[in-house]
Structure formats: structure tokens, C-alpha cells
Design a binder for these strands. Structure first.
Length: 506
RNA sequence: GGCGCAUUGGUGUAGUUGGUUAACACGCUGCCCUCUCAAGGCAGAGAUCACGGGUUCGAGUCCCGUAUGCGCUACCA
């Protein structure tokens, strides 16, 4: 039997990283077993479902490199099948019509209401499962339905006994029937409900393994009851530990904002492979404890048995731009940026530069080698792709900003630089062959002659040439920027020193 | 309210059938390297394995209880 798994998100809002992780694990399992990975959009809640959200889900999967097999399924398209299944169960006496008028609910306080209702029922000694229509005769039920009386369809759950199943992650699970209410299959307006739809679609799609979030663990019992009523085989279940916010609370879009959206990581300069790698480590670990894993290694090492049971905390600090997301994720992204094959990185840098109007066609033509060299040089200390257009801007454009603290630290601190730097530019201009070695020799010699430390000129040059206080080895930078640009930028320093003098006058 | 799941340093985790000073990664501190910042190398701080009982010669590992967190409990998904 070939494995068939599915990712079944509801298209309300952007792709949540927890959902993305579910998709990843399903995909990995399919790859590992040579099975199929299917996509089903659970859009039965038409009020909240949007096309935009569906698109963002597909984009997200594509970004992570998770290609799905076969046709994408929209759950709403199967509503007739869901209804037919429910009606069949009514005919067979496994489900019944409930003519109780639909209760008014306040969506905002459902959880509270559930608890309150349970409490009052317990006090009054009422069995929550009691329903006057459960044992209504077939003839009477048919008659009232034919008369146009509205009804919901509920599954008739046996009074005695219990369900059990073996969860691949959480182990044996049991639940007494007395804990399960007769669940509604069809609303009184004919709309099929979640548990029914999922089961019917999973059967329809031939799903063999259901891999999803732990929030569905207890609902699984209801679904198993449905499989049994439908007389079909029950798939294997593997539930995934939840991903929590730093306060160990639920990680929600509403509360935590964009950190939970997968697209955020794409938009903020993550390398897909890095984020995929990080995501895989949330709730799963490789047998040998290896952490940097390529896709093929992930597929190779992945197994459902190594998934954890305890929830994973996604660590980030709100309102702190430096720790806007999990530090390990950031570290891993940096690791990928500086170690991945340069050929794979170049297109990503290209996209980043293009988005910031820094891209020039020569970078893929006459300046190909130069471009690859720059990227290779500056990537060593970058954390995200964004850094190429921000801190790295001076390498691609003459129009770049100077970091305030860099100017203070490397330029304004020593008045001699006002004359030294232009004089040094003079020296560089005279060099016949311009490369790192020549620049170094020139600089060290000039420093000695001028009676200043080489470091003063090096750091001053760094800020004049790149606007930054930090960066690659300076002599490499001289070479990569080229003689002309170095000379020009070193001479343009006057404004800084004028400002300095002005400050001094006050 | 009921039911379920979880609980190893700040975070992610290892700890296969109970047996030496609880391991790894990120982060943090210091040193080395050095033109800066990273990277890299070295060293270090940080966990009485939620708590309380029990079983045992011996428990993070087994049992019971408590606490905390989370989930489910809906004519939401």
C-alpha cells in the first residue's frame, strides 16, 4: 500500500508557521516512503475563507519547496458527498435527525459557555448526551422532515463502550463513549460540519496517514466513530506537538502578529532551505542529533517515531528588532547564507537587489565574476538576504547612507583624518596595479610616513567607502570596489569634517 | 465543570531495556586571532531533570498524587 498523506489548511488568513510545519512533516513522510503528498483546502467556512489566503498557502508551500501531488482539492466542492454520506447514515439508523431549534451562540464566548453549560448540567444531574429525538421512530422522523421541519443530523453514539486508537506519536489513546456527545454531522441548513467533511474527504482521497496538530488529538475519537459507522478502514494517526509562544501560550496571529506568518520569513530575507531546516527541528530531531540538514538529509533522517510529545516554544521577543524571531532561526539563516553554494545564493541576492532597485544587468554579464566575488565577500557576516541591500548597499550603489555611530567612531574621532584621507586617495590614484596587496602596501607605507597607526586609516576608509563601522577585511574591500570608486569616496569626506568643525565651534 | 496531553539549564533538544561527575545546538561571559565586526579556536557560567511520595542496592528513566501549561468539549475549523 502506498502512503498517501495530506496537508489540509483552512484558508483564513496567512499560512501559520505551525501549519507550515505540519505541511513539512507530511511532505517529508511522503518523500521518505515514496508516497503522495496531497493538498486539500478546507474552505467550508465560506464566511472566513478567502482566495487570497489560498494563494498565500500555495505560495508558502512553493517557497518551502514542498510540491504537492495530484490536483488540489477544495473541500467545499465535496459538500454534496458529505451530505449524501450523512443521509445514508440516517437511513441506516446510525445517525438521526435532531429537530431541536438551533440555539443562538455567541462565538466570542463559546469556550466559556461550554464550561458553564457543563457545570449547570452536572449540578442538575442532566446527561449531556440526552436528546429527545435520538430514539424517535423512523416513520415519525421521516414525516416531520417531509413536512419541512428543519433538523440537524447527529451521529448516534453507543451508550456503552469506548474508542481506542494507537497514535504514532502519542501512543495508545482511549476515550469512553460517555465523554462524547452525539456530534452534529449536518447543520439544520444542510451545511456539513468539519468532522464529517474531513473523514469523507480523507476516505475519498485514500489517505493512509493523518499527520496533523495535536489540537485534533481528542477529536480523533469522534472521527474514528465515523469511520466505523461508514464501515471503512481507519487511517493511521500521528499528532504533532503544538508550537507555543514564549509565554507558553498559544501562538496566534492576532496576538503575535507577523512572526507567525510564513510569508514574513520570505519577506524578511530568509533562505527557504534555512527556514525549512529550522521548522523541521520544531518538534522533531534527527537520531544522531545532527541539526544542519539539507532537504535530502531531512528526508533520509525523518521518521514519525522521532517526533516529540511536548510542545515547542518558538522563542522571540516582541518589540525588539534584533530578536524579532527565534535566534536559532536567525543563526541558521546566517549559517546557510555563508556556507551554501554561491551559485544558489546569487539568484536570491539578485532578487533582493532588484526589489531595491540596485540590480544591474551587468552583474549577470560582464561583471558576473565581480558580482559573485562581492557576494562571497560580504555574505560572511550577514544574517538575512535583506542585509545585501541594506548594509551591503555601498557595494552596489554610490548612493548609500552613513551609519551615525560609524561616522562618530571612525571619522570624527580624529581631526587628522580630514587631511589624511584625501591624501591617501592621492596615493591610491597613483597605483599602477590596483589590488588588495597593493592597497595594503600603500596604506601601511602612508601610515608610517604620516606617523599614524594603520588602523586609523583602515577604519576611516571603511566608513568612507562603505558607510559602515564593520565589514570584511579592508584590503579586500579596496580591491572589490576598484581604484576609481575608492579614490572618489575617500575624497568626498569633506562634509563630515565640516560638520565636525561646526560642532567644535559651538 | 469533564476528559485528554505535556513538564530535562533562557530556548530547541539527547538521554533506546533504571547503573560512573545529565550530553549537544542556539544564546550568554572571557581569552586567542585581528584593521572593525563576524566566522573560527579555546575556556567558562547556567539544570538538585516541575513538586511530593513510593518501588529499588540504585530513578530524569517505573508507579501514585499535586501543581502548572496547553488542547478538546460548538448546528467553528
Amino acid at each position: 500500500m502506498t502512503v498517501r498523506v495530506r496537508f489540509a489548511p483552512s484558508p483564513t488568513g496567512y499560512l501559520h508557521i505551525g501549519a507550515a510545519r505540519s505541511a513539512l512533516f507530511n511532505w517529508l513522510y511522503a518523500q521518505k516512503t515514496g508516497g503522495k503528498f496531497l493538498l486539500r483546502i478546507e474552505d467550508t467556512d465560506l464566511q472566513r475563507s478567502t482566495d487570497e489566503s489560498t494563494r498565500s498557502i500555495i505560495d508558502g508551500l512553493e517557497w518551502l519547496g514542498l510540491h504537492f501531488d495530484e490536483e488540489m482539492i477544495f473541500q467545499s466542492a465535496n459538500a454534496d458527498k458529505h451530505r449524501a454520506a450523512a443521509n445514508k447514515l440516517v437511513d441506516e439508523g446510525k445517525a438521526y435527525r435532531d429537530f431541536t431549534p438551533r440555539a443562538q451562540r455567541d462565538d466570542a464566548n463559546v469556550k466559556q459557555n461550554i464550561a458553564e453549560r457543563a457545570r449547570t448540567q452536572a449540578v442538575a444531574g442532566v446527561d449531556p448526551r440526552s436528546n429527545e429525538y435520538r430514539d424517535l421512530s423512523k416513520a415519525e422522523s421521516d414525516r416531520r422532515a417531509a413536512a419541512g421541519e428543519p433538523f440537524a443530523v447527529r451521529l448516534k453514539i453507543a451508550r456503552e463502550g469506548k474508542t481506542h486508537f494507537e497514535d504514532i506519536v502519542y501512543g495508545p489513546q482511549e476515550r469512553a463513549y460517555s465523554e462524547i456527545e452525539d456530534l452534529v454531522l449536518l447543520r439544520s441548513d444542510g451545511h456539513p460540519l468539519y468532522n464529517l467533511s474531513v473523514v469523507i474527504d480523507d476516505i475519498e482521497m485514500g489517505i493512509t496517514h493523518v499527520i496533523r496538530g495535536q489540537d485534533h488529538l481528542t477529536n480523533t475519537h469522534k472521527q474514528i466513530l465515523l469511520y466505523e459507522a461508514l464501515e471503512t478502514s481507519v487511517p493511521q494517526f500521528a499528532h504533532l506537538p503544538l508550537i507555543l509562544a514564549p509565554n507558553k501560550g498559544k501562538l496566534s496571529k492576532r496576538k503575535h502578529g507577523e512572526v507567525v506568518s510564513l510569508t514574513t520569513y520570505r519577506d524578511r530575507g530568509f533562505v527557504p532551505a534555512a527556514f525549512r531546516n529550522f521548522l523541521a527541528l520544531l518538534g522533531w530531531s534527527a537520531p544522531e542529533g545532527k541539526e544542519m540538514l539539507s532537504v535530502s538529509e531531512l528526508v533520509e533522517e525523518f521518521s514519525l517515531e522521532h517526533i516529540h510529545r511536548s510542545p515547542a516554544v518558538f522563542n522571540f521577543q516582541e518589540n525588539d528588532p534584533r530578536h524579532w524571531t527565534d535566534e536559532k532561526a536567525l543563526w541558521m539563516n546566517a549559517e546557510y547564507i555563508r556556507t551554501m553554494p554561491i551559485a544558489e545564493l546569487l539568484p536570491m541576492v539578485k532578487a533582493e537587489l532588484r526589489a531595491n532597485k540596485l540590480w544591474r544587468e551587468e552583474y549577470e554579464d560582464d561583471d558576473r565574476e565581480w558580482f559573485a566575488k562581492v557576494v562571497d565577500l560580504i555574505r560572511q557576516r550577514f544574517f538575512t538576504l535583506k542585509d545585501f541591500s541594506a548594509q551591503g548597499r555601498a557595494y552596489f550603489s554610490d548612493d548609500f547612507d552613513f551609519a551615525e555611530e560609524a561616522v562618530n567612531k571612525n571619522l570624527r574621532k580624529d581631526p587628522r583624518l580630514k587631511d589624511l584621507l584625501p591624501a591617501f586617495a592621492e596615493r591610491l590614484e597613483k597605483l599602477d596595479s590596483f589590488n588588495a596587496e597593493a592597497a595594503e602596501n600603500a596604506l601601511r607605507q602612508f601610515a608610517e610616513e604620516s606617523g599614524v597607526k594603520a588602523g586609523l586609516l583602515i577604519n576611516g576608509s571603511r566608513t568612507m567607502l562603505t558607510g559602515q563601522a564593520v565589514g570584511p577585511s579592508m584590503f579586500e574591500v579596496f580591491e572589490i570596489l576598484g581604484q576609481k570608486r575608492c579614490v572618489e569616496r575617500l575624497r568626498s569626506g569633506v562634509p563630515w569634517f565640516d560638520a565636525m568643525n561646526a560642532l567644535g565651534d559651538v
